[in-house]
Design a protein around this nucleic acid. Structure first.
Length: 587
RNA sequence: GCGCCCGUAGCUCAGUUGGAUAGAGUGUUGGCCUCCGAAGCCAAAGGUCAGAGGUUCGAAUCCUCUCGGGCGCGCCA
């Protein structure tokens, strides 16, 4: 409907230009919006105001000339000029009734488009370090990313969903060492567990797996393990970083590369497998799990550094190799190769993004936790230095969900093992409620997540309101069958003109908005718009339900109304589907 | 100290990218099941859009400053 009106307006403006009433130079995009008040019609256009300003004429006078030049349309009942120069469109009933025909004909395809024209988008999200189970903070990125991916696909982009597995680097060493120390405890050694180790219960489970596979083969006396190590935190002159690094080095030397790798890989497999199952159960699917280690083995890091060097954007200082990122908008330069010869995490991240572009994606979307926001300029700087357009990368920052329990804020840390897992949350509130709840707010908004509320009063969750509308419609059709009646959609199609009640008009207008909502939610990267829309649609339906009887006495009325609610059921099912939420037939 | 995000009803949040009289949910109060599912509907009350300037036909939205909150500022990841 909106494109149709925009077309009419475009023709009117073009006609004024052709007749010389309006100069050619003025280019103002035509914007149409839904009105807030019925008195203003169905759609309003403000084009006359900016155009009049540029042309130096009265807005209302110009609006009148535009209206006079509008081509006739069977969908437009009336056009009015109001206020400072708004052009208000009042649609015919037929215009909205036609939406039902469209929804029923297109089915699940209604609301989809080819706006993206098959362009390849790479969407990376969650990418939590495989050092522990996902917690509720990761859940928000997962739900957000999965829904955005579905939305982009719905409007015609080809989406590649990817999880970047940080399976190299110091965090993995800390993990391997933590596992090994717990393993030693299982062997009967007395171990002073380091302050900087991973303390979660899952480490014990992995250590047990390691022990089952190896018996005591990896055992070394505690005295040998802890001999001559720098003091840990809390001890006089202690440093938890130095302590853990020394323990890692000790683990490597005592176990040898084979034994050490065994501890590390046992942990990696267990944790990554757990994360994959967790996300899969949450309805979050990936096309690729991309390994950081493979990137390094592939030589991509060396290649990336080589490209920066070739571009003359590297220099040495203090024994380290620096990237001149400040020349590309970062606030200062960054180290890519440390004094000890090891590349930084930033270096492999440069390589990773370079590699993404080498794979041929036109557009990269990263979803990061908002605590990484300071990292955006340097990654873009690297892309710029390598000759890419930094605009190809779009980083969406998802604010962390602040958890409350008993009215108190929860402190969470993977290292300490004190956190609420995503799995725990899913079990308590259900996947549907969790998916919907996470996406209900726009991502840059801080989110208060009250666990008590989510768990104890999960019926208050808006997802049930939407699902209930769907289940109610299904129930109407069950009732119909029990009464020995049947729905004749073809007859309903012929009787759509009977749908003249205000609630029906309201409902049809909302249905007509669905394609616009999907497109806006996808292009603005704002899945919450879809969640709010579905709530509105459900509200319109529930209101209609209370005001009128669908299983009406006459077949004409009945079939027409059943066509309408069939269309509502379709749109609710489609919308919930995009959000990864089920549309139950009863509940 | 510098940078990014945020501040809208008692609480949790929308606000169609600068439009007309700022909206939902929840909570409070009062109504609606002999009738397709009451996990629902209707109504009322609730606002200095943090504050002050500025830009213009027009500002919750854009600019500046102030106040308040979150996060970041490593040869960690």
């Amino acid at each position: 409907m909106k494109p149709h009106l925009a077309e009419l307006l475009g023709e009117a403006v073009a006609a004024l230009r052709a007749s010389g009433e309006l100069s050619d130079g003025l280019k103002v995009p035509i914007e149409l919006e839904h009105t807030r008040q019925k008195a203003h019609g169905d759609f309003a256009c403000n084009i006359a105001m900016p155009l009049a300003k540029a042309a130096g004429v009265q807005p209302r006078a110009l609006a009148e000339r535009i209206v006079a030049a509008l081509p006739a349309s069977e969908w437009v009942a009336k056009v009015e000029i109001a206020g400072p120069g708004f052009i208000n469109f009042f649609l015919t009933r037929g215009a909205y009734q036609a939406v039902i025909t469209q929804v029923l004909a297109q089915g699940a395809a209604y609301g989809r488009s080819d706006r993206g024209q098959g362009r390849a988008v790479q969407l990376e999200f969650v990418s939590a370090n495989p050092t522990g189970p996902l917690h509720v903070g990761h859940g928000r990125g997962a739900a957000y990313g999965a829904t955005l991916a579905n939305l982009l696909e719905a409007v015609g982009f080809q989406v590649h969903r990817e999880y970047y597995v940080n399976d190299a680097g110091r965090q993995m060493d800390i993990l391997a060492t933590s596992i090994w120390l717990r393993y030693l405890e299982l062997c009967g050694e007395t171990v002073a567990f380091p302050a900087n180790g991973y303390r979660g219960d899952y480490i014990w489970d992995i250590a047990a797996t390691l022990h089952r596979a190896n018996g005591d083969a990896l055992r070394h006396p505690a005295a040998e393990v802890f001999a001559d190590l720098p003091p840990d935190a809390h001890a006089p002159g202690g440093d938890k970083e130095a302590r853990i690094d020394a323990l890692i080095a000790r683990a490597k030397s005592l176990l040898g590369m084979t034994g050490y790798r065994q501890a590390l890989d046992t942990g990696l497999e267990a944790i990554l497998g757990d994360i994959r199952r967790d996300l899969e159960e949450f309805g979050v699917h990936y096309d690729e799990w991309f390994s950081e280690r493979s990137l390094i083995d592939d030589g991509a890091v060396e290649r990336a550094i080589g490209r920066l060097r070739a571009a003359e954007q590297l220099y040495e200082k203090g024994g380290a190799v620096w990237f001149r990122s400040s020349a590309f908008g970062d606030e200062k330069d960054r180290v890519v190769v440390r004094e000890n010869g090891q590349h930084t995490y930033f270096a492999s991240d440069i390589a990773y993004h370079m590699h993404k572009l080498e794979r041929g994606y036109e557009r990269l979307v990263d979803i990061w936790g908002a605590d990484h926001h300071g990292y955006v300029p340097r990654v873009k700087a690297a892309l710029g230095a390598m000759g890419h357009d930094p605009e190809q990368l779009d980083v969406l920052l998802v604010q962390f969900a602040v958890l409350y329990r008993g009215g108190k804020k929860l402190q969470m840390s993977t290292r300490s093992g004190e956190f609420v897992t995503l799995r725990e949350l899913r079990r308590e509130v259900g996947n549907d409620a969790a998916r919907f709840f996470y996406v209900l707010r726009k991502c840059e908004q801080h989110m208060d997540f009250d666990l008590d509320l989510a768990k104890s009063q999960s019926n208050d969750n808006p997802v049930y309101y939407v699902q209930y509308a769907h289940a109610r419609i299904c129930s109407v059709f069950r009732q119909l069958q029990e009464k020995g009646l049947r729905h004749d959609p073809e007859n309903g199609e012929r009787q759509l003109s009977l749908l003249v009640e205000s609630h029906e008009q309201e409902l049809m207008a909302t249905l007509a908005r669905y394609p616009e909502v999907v497109e806006a939610a996808a292009l603005n990267e704002d899945p919450h718009q879809l969640a709010h829309y579905l709530r509105e649609l459900a509200n319109d339906f529930h209101t209609y339900y209370n005001a009128h009887t669908f299983i009406a006495d006459t077949a004409e009325q009945r079939d027409a109304r059943l066509n309408l609610i069939t269309a509502v059921r379709q749109v609710i099912a489609s919308g919930l589907g995009l959000m990864g939420v089920s549309a139950p037939e009863s509940m």
